[in-house]
């Protein structure tokens, strides 16, 4: 008998919820989505969701577990849980340095959420905030990421930790890819651009609004073969 799907309290425009959806898609985990009226309804601050997560944030993952329901409210923890269940390769090889570097990026991703995510909420949904300060810390984080990804390229590695994707990439990708939503340009980061392309080209990758399909992965459907002409 298969156990019921984990329930994700989800908002389509939330990059943090998207992390969970993306990880599940890449890992082949079926999620039961429970849409939350974040905007305009502010449902995440209502009694039902506050009972699950007093911090009033989403995503929330409720997963059936041997000891009762497991409730996770931190996106990094959700990624680790989904990967552990269904795609352990996303947790790296388990070598001490590798595991530690993954943890380093999971923690780093919180800075992306605060800075680039804060600028995005301000620009898109009118959330208050010091826009110049948010953008400046976002740019500082992007520069660190760019330098690290450049060194990865020198090693012939396309992802943050090694030559295959880990939860580190999934944790960092959404807020970086959506930085322009908050008015932070990605033009100046060639290594980030190549890394984003590698993530978007992954088997099973799914988009969220603001991240377009990599149409180049499919041939042009109207490029008629020469033989079809006559």
């Amino acid at each position: 008998m298969t156990s019921p799907s984990p329930v994700l309290y989800d908002y389509i425009l939330s990059p943090s919820c998207y992390k969970a959806r993306l990880m599940a898609a890449l890992a082949g985990v079926r999620l039961a989505l429970r849409p939350v009226d974040f905007h305009p309804g502010v449902e995440h601050r209502g009694p039902e969701l506050l009972a699950l997560n007093p911090a009033g944030s989403i995503p929330i993952l409720v997963a059936p577990d041997a000891d009762g329901d497991l409730i996770l409210t931190e996106s990094a923890a959700i990624l680790v849980y989904l990967a552990s269940k269904a795609a352990p390769a996303f947790l790296g090889s388990g070598k001490p340095a590798e595991s530690a570097r993954i943890q380093q990026w999971l923690a780093f991703s919180a800075r992306l959420t605060a800075s680039l995510g804060g600028a995005r909420l301000h620009e898109m949904l009118h959330r208050p905030g010091d826009l110049a300060g948010l953008r400046a810390s976002g740019i500082a984080a992007l520069r660190e990421l760019e330098a690290a990804l450049f060194e990865q390229r020198l090693k012939g590695e396309a992802f943050l930790v090694g030559n295959r994707p880990t939860v580190a990439d999934i944790a960092c990708f959404p807020y970086v890819a959506l930085a322009p939503d908050g008015g932070v340009s990605l033009d100046a980061y060639p290594s980030i651009r190549l890394w984003m392309r590698a993530v978007r080209a992954l088997e099973g990758f799914i988009e969220m609004p603001g991240i377009h399909r990599l149409h180049e992965l499919k041939p042009d459907p109207h490029e008629a073969p020469a033989t079809a002409e006559a």
Binding site: L214, H215, E216, P219, D220, E223
Partner: peptide, 18 residues
């Protein structure tokens, strides 16, 4: 620059003009 390259042509992301 938001577009995509297939083969020997550049396409616009908006309406796919090649």
């Amino acid at each position: 620059s938001h577009g995509f390259v297939r083969g020997e042509a550049l396409s616009c992301i908006y309406h796919g003009w090649r």
